[in-house]
Every structure is written in C-alpha cells, then in structure tokens.
C-alpha cells in the first residue's frame, strides 16, 4: 500500500531542488560560450536566411514583413528546442549514463527534488537560448516595442512546458535513439503546424483546429503580438494552457520516473 500512494503522490519539491539546479549550472558554466553560440547560430541562420531570402519574394505576412513575422516564431521554436534537448539528452545522460541522479538520491534529496531541479534547469537554459535570439532581434531592429520584454516570461513558461514534456520522454527512454521518435513524430510536425513559419490559418480547418491546442501554438500566439508591439488576445487562455500542460506533464514525468528509479 505504501508503494502505491508514494508512486502517485503529488511532487513536493519545496526549494531543495536548488542544489540540483546549481550542479547543472556549474557544469554549464564551464562550457558556456560554445553552448550559447551553438544555441544561437542555428536558429539565426534559419531566421535570417528564410526571413530575408524567402521574405523578399513574399508580400507582407499577417500585415508585417516576413522576417518580422518569423522572428517571434524563431524565439519560441528555439526555446522549445533548447528545453527539449536538455530534458531529453542531458537529463537522460545524468539519469542513465552518468548515474548522477543515483548519487543525489543517496543524500537527503529525493527524486522530487531532482526532477524539479532538472525541470527548472532545462527551462533556465532555454530562457538563455530564447533571450539570445530576442537580443539579436532587438539589435536588428525587428522589434522596437517595450512590450517585447514581456516575451521573457513567455519564453520561461514555454521552456518549463517543454522541459516537463521532455522529462516524460526521458523517463521512458531505453537509450538515446528513442528520442528520435519524439522529434520526428511530435516536435517537427508541431513546428510546422503551430504558426512558426507561416500563419496557422493557412492550414486546412481541421488541422488548424487541432494545432491550436498544441503548446507551441499557445507560445507563439503570446510571443508574436508582444514582439510586434501588441497585447496578445486571450492571454489567460494561452498562459493557462501552457501552465496546465507543464503541471500535468511534470506530474506524469514524476510518476513514470519513480516507477523507473524507485522500484
């Protein structure tokens, strides 16, 4: 009986997850420069290449130049990628390959602390990624409104949501190869239907209806108006959806990881 209740109880990380976050931060600090450059280069190449190259052939998209339209999409997409990579590959390597989590579980910290530390860490790293893009967008003059600063909490929330979902995948993974399914079956299709590269209402109505439920769609519908200097419509709906997905995903990840490690 003990076992069943412990397995399904709500995570209670308190604030003791901070040493776990700090451990990951210390590792990252040693490799910070290449890590930031790596996170920045890829999305910027896409944004500038597509934005100016493809954009020059296009009329305005949703009332703005294509590169401006694409910039908000690039911010949330690279946030999603950074959080997902961290929660998949890096967390998996700490959990399964290096057994860092096992070492931590022998201290007064519990799995709840470990997972919360990993969640906030992945979100923090994705925040840096998103911020770096945001700074470049500002420097290029693609966004000029102070409202764009509100994109920062949106980036962090997006990071939390994708980190939590990533931790579910991590808890199920037998090896690194497993993550390919998540990318090809979920992340990549979502990237194409959530309004990152083109307005989602270009999609067939049925696809659009389904796509508007996806977390990336909520994120982009918050970030794009903010970067264009507008207040997003339905703020509470989008923030609420992202928060709810993050909470549910983190709970599911907690249960699955307990099943895997505390058996």
């Amino acid at each position: 009986m003990i076992r069943t209740t412990a397995l399904f109880q709500l995570p209670r990380p308190g604030l003791n997850w901070f040493p776990v976050w700090r451990r990951n931060f210390l590792v990252w600090r040693k490799l910070a420069i290449p890590s930031i450059l790596g996170n920045l280069a890829d999305p910027l190449i896409y944004m500038l290449g597509l934005g100016y190259g493809l954009g020059n052939m296009l009329p305005e998209v949703s009332g703005v130049k294509y590169v401006s339209f694409l910039s908000a999409g690039t911010v949330v997409a690279s946030t999603m990628n950074a959080a997902t990579f961290e929660a998949l590959y890096s967390s998996f390597s700490r959990m399964h390959v290096q057994k860092t989590w096992d070492a931590i579980l022998n201290t007064p910290l519990s799995l709840d602390h470990v997972l919360a530390g990993e969640l906030v860490w992945a979100a923090s790293k994705s925040l840096l990624s998103g911020l770096a893009i945001l700074v470049v967008i500002g420097a290029l003059g693609l966004t000029q409104s102070p409202l764009a600063l509100w994109a920062i909490p949106v980036i962090f929330l997006t990071g939390l949501t994708f980190a939590a979902m990533g931790l579910i995948v991590c808890s199920l993974a037998p090896s690194y190869d497993f993550f390919m399914y998540y990318f090809t079956l979920f992340i990549t299709p979502m990237l194409l239907v959530s309004g990152i590269f083109f307005p989602a209402d270009q999609l067939p109505a049925a696809v659009h209806a389904v796509a508007s439920w996806l977390p990336l769609a909520h994120a982009v519908q918050l970030a794009r108006p903010l970067l264009l200097g507008e207040v997003p419509s339905n703020i509470f709906g989008h923030v609420g959806a992202l928060t709810l997905i993050a909470l549910v995903a983190f709970y599911v990840a907690s249960v699955l990881t307990r099943k895997r490690l505390l058996k």
């Binding site: 040493p19 040693k30 290096q98 070492a103 007064p108």
Partner: peptide
C-alpha cells in the same frame, strides 16, 4: 557515479550542497 565534469574538490563541494 562521480561527476565527470568536475574536479576532485568540486565533486565534494557539489555533493555537500545536497546535504
């Protein structure tokens, strides 16, 4: 399961923080 990214001292410091 020592931390491969850290030095000897860092391993002890980081582990002590968990306590």
């Amino acid at each position: 399961n020592l931390d491969p990214d850290f030095t000897v001292t860092e391993n002890l410091v980081v582990y002590g923080r968990y306590f």
